[in-house]
């Protein structure tokens, strides 16, 4: 299993969000389809930190218009966005 398969990305991003923004919370509460931006968990400052993490961890770059809930609102969406960027690189 590589670090860039779907399950690994979801697990890694989940861990990052929990450790950075929600210390002490039960990981099971943060489901794959839970809205993060429209659900009040990620605000604009936290979003920028998440982007910084994704760019460094996966060697991808985000355009300004992608920093929005259409691309980043759930763990599933974040993972799809990262995977699409990785595919473009190849």
């Amino acid at each position: 299993m590589s670090d860039t398969d779907r399950d690994s990305i979801i697990a890694r991003v989940r861990r990052f969000i929990l450790e950075e923004f929600l210390p002490g919370e039960d990981p099971e509460d943060l489901t794959d389809s839970m809205p993060l931006i429209s659900g009040g968990i990620l605000d604009s400052i936290k979003n920028m930190r998440l982007i910084g993490f994704l760019e460094e961890e996966y060697g991808v770059a985000f355009e300004a218009h992608e920093i929005s809930f259409e691309f980043l609102d759930t763990l599933e969406l974040i993972t799809s966005t990262v995977q699409a960027k990785l595919a473009e690189k190849k």
């Binding site: 929600l22 919370e25 509460d29 809205p35 429209s38 659900g39 009040g40 968990i41 605000d43």
Partner: peptide, 16 residues
């Protein structure tokens, strides 16, 4: 009490 669940609840009731 879960911060995650409460944030979800609040986001349905007040502006973000």
């Amino acid at each position: 009490l879960s911060t995650i669940a409460m944030k979800q609840f609040c986001s349905k009731n007040v502006p973000l």
